[in-house]
Design a protein around this nucleic acid. Sequence first.
DNA 1: TTTGCGTGTGAACACGCGTTCATGGGCATA
DNA 2: TATGCCCATGAACGCGTGTTCACACGCAAA
Lengths: 351, 351
Amino acid sequence: MSKEINSTEIARLAGVSRSTVSRVINNYANVPEQTKQKVMKVIQQYNYFPNLSAQVLAGKRTRTIGLFMIDSGRVSGDSISSLLLARIIESASSQGYYVLTHIVRDMKDLDEARTIKESFYQRRIDGGIFIGAANHEPLIEEMIADGFKVGIVDHYLPGRMEPNRLVYNFDNETGVGQAIDYLVSLGHKRIGMINGDMNRYSGPSKLKSFQAAMQRHQLQVVQQWMLPGDFNEESGYKAITAFLKTEPAELPTAIFAVNDSVAFGAVRALKELGISVPGQMSVIGFDDHFRSSYFSPALTTIRVDFADMMDRLAKSLITSIEKGAAAFQIFSAETELVVRHSCQSMPVTQL
Amino acid sequence: MSKEINSTEIARLAGVSRSTVSRVINNYANVPEQTKQKVMKVIQQYNYFPNLSAQVLAGKRTRTIGLFMIDSGRVSGDSISSLLLARIIESASSQGYYVLTHIVRDMKDLDEARTIKESFYQRRIDGGIFIGAANHEPLIEEMIADGFKVGIVDHYLPGRMEPNRLVYNFDNETGVGQAIDYLVSLGHKRIGMINGDMNRYSGPSKLKSFQAAMQRHQLQVVQQWMLPGDFNEESGYKAITAFLKTEPAELPTAIFAVNDSVAFGAVRALKELGISVPGQMSVIGFDDHFRSSYFSPALTTIRVDFADMMDRLAKSLITSIEKGAAAFQIFSAETELVVRHSCQSMPVTQL
DNA sequence: TTTGCGTGTGAACACGCGTTCATGGGCATA
DNA sequence: TATGCCCATGAACGCGTGTTCACACGCAAA
């Protein structure tokens, strides 16, 4: 190639002015086909690529999206974050956009936040995507105030649906409904739930969906069986342990876990405390974590099409960057019941 | 902030010239402390960040590394690629560098390669990292020829240790040795191996290490038990199936799989053909894939500290970018035997 | 006082490209 | 042939910063 060649040189070689080269590159209408081809030929021959920095300086967009991911622990393997990351990169890439990724362990680390902001601003990103950010994160608010287009995943902002802010959340009603429907179809009536952090979208959203589904089946939501959690495996384990310590008079026959990680912890606790799954207790998860099919028992769960979600998120953000529009959105991801071995129909005696 | 503020404005507000502002930002020596502080105060007050595009245009580095990852199928979950990706991003990030990521399903897709090259060149990256690229990939060769610093993971280039090319590979001898030592300590003498693609570094490297370890224990390498594979689960399955179809006179009592994915496939095939693991055949893997602890039986394997590797890779590449030096390297990652349930000691009768 | 030198600073140029403005030429119409 | 208009294209400016060069100033030495 020619790290060094520039449009002036191309112009000279093609026997035109630099302006014309620029017009060809930017697809101006009033360039005759003959001129266009002449220039293109030289461009390809010398493998010329316009310098993005110069283009940006001259007023073009950077075509860069800042991706800000909070991953307590590790994006490594045991998390769907890496899937989200990869899909966003792929989707943006296919539209000529590039992704500047920051992975942060804890949003509270101010120094890190400062660094992130600096790099985003220095590089003049066109927009940002935040995954896993807590409610009303100052960094997000600042960036929106500064005019950035921002997409937020799993961020609960009731009543704050201003423009320039895209909130990508899940339509949990269908998915949670599928889970409860399935449990009911197996004969379960005493159904409990382990929830997640109520400050994030998924917590209240799934709770509401759970309640709606139970009501649809005219089943009672027993408050004692509504266990608090925090989206991770450990919290599922603790929820069950704490619950059983209270020596409840009556146990549910099935539990809906807010996600698969919580379900893993819950099943582990149940087994350790001598309650067999699904023999004595059915457990259903949510997300279809890649571990779920290898878990013992293989976890029955609701599969969510995250890949499609992220694809649409990226596309939507880019559209909003290019067209200038931006509105609050709720996405409805496809959900699907995946039947494995952690749920079982109720013996008639227990009905 | 002030997407709009620039160094001219800062200079005006601080009562100095733009040159002085630039000197402060770039830490020039001959700026008196008093002037420096005066300027810094204004910079912080107005939350000013220099425009990277302008800096680059004026001759600075982009502080951007292109990461090129080939992931047949998905980086999503079932792969260590996502771990590598995340760690490289984190490591580069901590040194003020940013990572431009490309995920490609197949290196053969020329259009995609063209796009990648375009974006790398357009954005004037300082260097590139290639993960999973096949041998003598033209894109890599071109980039090296164009003067880029390039780091290559798992890329076997015997006799091609020119400058400007960093080849990051693993010291497999220790790890493979640990695996064989363990099998021998359990009483195994008839040990087979399922290998990977011999065109990539890991294949020949692990084979050599296997042979060395066997020789150390004065055990014979039986050619019939050296099964070909391709690093993925399917190839492990096929290797075992094909091997058993030959109705070998004698079976090995233990198998060393080139990685955990291959081991998963092998175990699955063994079970389907009625050979119990570890009852009749011990299987040991390599990598400590996150699925390994959930596999049934939980897989005994060799854990490799990939995170540390990637960290060093990124650091080394950045050093080579900044100092200009670049040489061939082999890294010795820490390895550790992880004993789970896929290996068992030999009954005395079989010894 | 004069000379010399070092230190701090501003003016000016370069980086590569997009875009506006002006101009020249070709063609159709009067 | 003269006039008008549109199309194609080149010249020139601006984007924000780094860096070189030259110069003014202050102080020490002669």
